[in-house]
Design a protein around this nucleic acid. Structure first.
Lengths: 142, 142
DNA sequence: ATACCTGCAAATTATTTGCAATATA
DNA sequence: TATATTGCAAATAATTTGCAGGTAT
């Protein structure tokens, strides 16, 4: 189908995948870049983005939508739920999506192929609520 | 609570809300801007963004997360589902979310306040599938 | 040798913001 | 008159891309 070109091995790509796989906090491209510089000091941000894109195409990782205009990445490829804190941007995985009747949603004739189903809950995490109650308000983004 | 300052009326804001309310296709800021220019020729994109933000704060509209790096807007304030086409970026509203057991998802102690719950289905719409079958491939974004 | 990958820097895209002028209350 | 809102242009922020050199096959 798709003009699949043969891939060469790359240390950068291997390390990026390894890093994202070993985290549960859905790192952003920037966070991945900052970490990678410790392993491969002169890696460039462009390389990080390019590899995240191919890894996504390879279905090794998945992009997570957030309301804070920054893409986050994830290696859980099953259909699961995300809680996103509007204050600190934290993404928390939630497990119990079994009861979601996906099939019912997908009866619409205008839908073609389904790739992923994500339940996204936007709100504020307990930690941020606590901080706000105590008076000190901190925001990740303006 | 929030330092609520009194608002002045603005024709720009009224028209923007009216436009988003009368559409079902989740327009982007850019699309809203292009349309608004027909009504108010020298409106600026900054004004569109500023008003979308206040309308969101007023809970008159809602931002929709899409995987195509562009915010889309919506006036359905109930918790509903979105189908997003990865090819053309189209956002389709889906109705049957009743069976989703939101409460179960929300038992996690790290969750504080819940603002919105959105089920997002990423895939490809029937129209795009049809076009691809017929050979002519068109993409909104590279 | 060939095709893929990289680092770097410049380019692009989406969104935000400072400011002086204008509209609303 | 005081304050909110606007248009404009410049500033940011996130991501993408062209290119020349480097690396894997």
């Amino acid at each position: 189908m798709k003009n699949q070109k043969k891939m060469h091995y790359s240390r950068q790509r291997e390390k990026i995948l390894e890093y994202v796989q070993n985290r549960t906090d859905h790192p952003s491209a920037e966070q991945i870049y900052l970490y990678m510089r410790e392993e491969i000091p002169n890696i460039s941000l462009g390389t990080v983005y390019r590899n995240l894109k191919v890894l996504e195409e390879m279905k090794e990782i998945r992009r997570v939508l957030t309301p804070l205009n920054e893409e986050r990445y994830d290696t859980r490829m099953d259909n699961h739920a995300h809680f996103i804190c509007r204050n600190c941007g934290k993404v928390i995985d939630l497990n119990t999506v079994d009861n979601l009747k996906t099939e019912q949603l997908c009866e619409d004739p205008s839908l073609g192929a389904i790739y992923t189903v994500t339940v996204t809950i936007e709100g504020e995490c307990a930690e941020c609520m606590e901080i706000e109650k105590s008076g000190t308000v901190t925001r990740m983004k303006a």
